[in-house]
Design a binder for these strands. Structure first.
Length: 237
DNA sequence: TCATTAAATTGTT
DNA sequence: AACAATTTAATGA
C-alpha cells in the first residue's frame, strides 16, 4: 500500500460500521467473512495522496469507504487522462491483482478519503475458496466493462450538459458504487476535474439538469431524482 | 446550547 | 480568474 501515513492516520483494522459498508462481505460464508474482515485495513488519504501508482507492485485490493478518488493514466506525452471517479463503495485493482501485474493506472485522492485494503494474498485465497466472492468479482468486471464502453461514448459527446449527466450517472451506478446511495458527496470543482470542464460550465450544466428534475443540487453534493434519465436523456437546451 | 468566526462551496460576472 | 453570497464546521463562552 502506498498511502503515506505521514502526518495522518496510520493503517488500522476496520470498525464495525466501516465493515458494514463493504458490499462483498455480505456475499461470503461466515468463515470466509471472518478471515477477510480480520485482514482488511483502512487508511486515511488526504487530497493528492496516491493510493496506487503505475508500475508499482500490487499489494492490496482497494475499496473506497468514504471520500472520493480519481483513476487516471499518463500517456507518453505526459498528459493525464482521467478514467473515472471512485466514490464510496467502489472497489478497484482486481484486474491487476488477478494477473499479478504492476498497476497500470494511478489512483489518487481528490478529497480526504478513507480507503480500505485487502491484502492480495487474502484476495487470492477468497478467489480460491469463495463462490460468493467470485460472483462479486465477475459482476464487478462486467459492470466496469460496461462503464468504460459508456465512457468512450461520453468522450464523443460535445454537449457539456450531456457529458456532465453521463459522468454523474456513472458515479451513481449502484452496482459499482453501492456506498453512494441517493446523494453523492462531490463538489462542483471536483466534478469539473473528473469531467474535464470548468467549474462554471459544470455549475451551469447542473442547474440545467436540476431544471429537468433529474437531480437536485445541494451544498457539497448532488441528489439523484431520476437515474435512468441521467443516463439516457438528451437535454436539448 | 448559542453566538461568533473561519473555512468551504456555490453563484455570478 | 476574481469576487460576492451562502452554507457548513469549528470555537469558546
Amino acid at each position: 500500500m502506498t498511502i503515506e501515513p505521514s502526518l495522518h492516520q496510520r493503517r488500522r483494522p476496520l470498525t464495525q460500521t466501516e465493515l458494514g459498508g463493504i458490499p462483498w462481505l455480505a456475499l461470503l460464508l461466515p468463515p470466509e467473512r471472518e478471515r477477510a474482515a480480520a485482514e482488511l485495513v483502512v487508511s486515511q488519504a488526504v487530497p493528492g495522496d496516491h493510493i496506487c501508482r503505475v508500475g508499482r507492485e500490487v499489494t492490496y485490493w482497494f475499496g473506497v469507504v468514504d471520500g472520493l478518488l480519481k483513476m487516471s493514466s499518463d500517456n507518453a506525452q505526459g498528459e493525464t487522462m482521467t478514467f473515472t471517479g471512485l466514490p464510496p463503495g467502489g472497489w478497484f485493482g482486481e484486474g491487476t491483482a488477478l494477473k499479478r501485474e504492476p498497476y497500470r493506472y494511478n489512483v489518487l485522492a481528490l478529497r480526504r478519503s478513507l480507503v480500505a485494503g485487502l491484502p492480495v494474498a487474502t484476495f487470492d485465497w477468497l478467489l480460491d475458496h469463495s463462490i460468493g466472492f467470485n460472483r462479486f468479482v465477475m459482476r464487478q468486471l462486467n459492470e466496469r466493462l460496461a462503464q468504460f464502453i459508456a465512457a468512450r461514448e461520453i468522450d464523443r459527446l460535445s454537449n457539456p450538459d450531456l457529458r456532465v449527466a453521463r459522468n454523474l450517472a456513472a458515479l451513481f451506478n449502484p452496482a459499482l458504487f453501492p456506498g453512494v446511495g441517493q446523494v453523492l458527496r462531490i463538489t462542483q470543482q471536483e466534478l469539473a476535474y473528473l469531467v474535464g470542464l470548468s467549474r462554471q460550465r459544470v455549475n451551469e450544466a447542473l442547474r440545467t439538469l436540476e431544471q429537468h428534475a433529474v437531480i437536485r443540487v445541494e451544498y457539497g453534493g448532488l441528489r439523484v431524482l431520476d437515474l435512468a434519465r441521467l443516463r439516457s436523456a438528451t437535454f436539448s437546451t
